[in-house]
């Protein structure tokens, strides 16, 4: 075998290795999900979704966890979208290029990389204890908001940047103020891509457990929260709790809970992909 044939074989071999690896992770994930479905689907019924937690695995359900998760999502959207989009607008449209905006930029890149459990520690010390919010939904959602605000800021800035400058000039030339230009032209034009980014951030937030355990989400809550000041538990925390029990019946519950959690996560991801495709088709500058 001469040198050049050998080279070509190595090349071919590597190509197959690449294809193999591309699908390796995905196939493993598919196998995981298949096993979970096998174990969890039979357990997944209406009772499981509407039952309170219990010491007896066959009676236990995810009702409080599911309502807690929806509450958490709702409050987090309110805080993170208002603050994150505002900060994004400020950085992109108002902040003067200089040392301060550079500092803000570096700071945001850093915040994106801070482990989520550290946000939990911040929430614990500041919201729970200093502000006295305790282990409430409010403290939890504020913590989760701080976690995803950097992501929303980055999304907002990129979306605004993608709006052509000529739109801004057109509005200014008609006598619009800076804010009128942002509010009436730039934000609506950027909204599709901002919404896509926000939903992606929420898809990540809905699966977070660690920081919320630190800020006092409980593992056992026998009632559903009614106000933002109530105690709560969440779907990922309920799953964590069942996973750490020795009885195999609880593992079945965990599997069923995971099916629900994965459904919600993939649903949010799917919505954002759908919106992104729809938006890309609609807008061409």
């Amino acid at each position: 075998m001469n040198n050049s044939t050998k080279n070509r074989l190595t090349d071919k071999a590597f190509q197959y290795f690449g294809i193999f690896n591309t699908f390796l992770g995905l196939v493993m994930l598919a196998v995981f999900i298949f096993v979970i479905m096998q174990v969890g689907l039979p357990r997944l019924n209406w009772d499981f979704i509407t039952s309170l937690p219990s010491r007896f695995p066959e009676k236990a359900g995810i009702y409080t966890a599911l309502i807690g998760t929806f509450w958490m999502l709702f409050l987090t959207i309110i805080f993170s979208v208002t603050l994150g989009v505002s900060a994004g607008i400020y950085l992109e449209e108002y902040a003067k290029k200089g040392w301060f905006s550079k500092l803000l930029e570096i700071n945001i890149s850093n915040l994106v990389g801070v482990p989520s459990v550290i946000y939990g520690i911040l929430g614990l010390a500041f919201f729970n204890r200093y502000l006295g919010l305790g282990g409430s939904l409010l403290a939890g959602s504020l913590t989760l908001s701080l976690l995803i605000i950097p992501v929303i800021i980055v999304t907002t800035r990129e979306s605004l940047k993608a709006v052509p400058k000529t739109i801004k000039e057109g509005a200014y030339a008609l006598g619009a103020t800076r804010w009128q230009t942002i509010w009436k032209q730039q934000l609506p034009a950027a909204s599709g891509s901002i919404v896509t980014g926000v939903i992606l951030a929420l898809a990540r937030a809905i699966g977070e457990a660690a920081p919320l355990i630190v800020v006092g989400a409980l593992v056992y809550v026998p009632f559903i929260p009614h106000t933002p000041m109530d105690d709560y538990t969440l779907l990922p925390i309920q799953i964590f709790n069942w996973t750490s029990r020795p009885q195999p019946e609880f593992q079945v519950n965990a599997s069923a809970g995971i099916i629900v959690l994965l459904f919600l996560t993939f649903l949010l991801n799917g919505i954002s992909i759908y919106l992104r495709n729809k938006w890309q088709k609609k807008v061409k500058w």
Binding site: A87, Y94, T177
Partner: peptide, 29 residues
């Protein structure tokens, strides 16, 4: 319209500052 514009800019700037406060908060604690 000036005062309203200024107020909005201030509010937006406060949100920008929040990111600095988050980092400072983590460090201080």
């Amino acid at each position: 319209r000036r005062p309203k514009e200024k107020l909005i800019e201030k509010l937006l700037a406060m949100s920008g500052w929040l990111t600095i406060l988050t980092t400072l908060g983590i460090l201080v604690i």
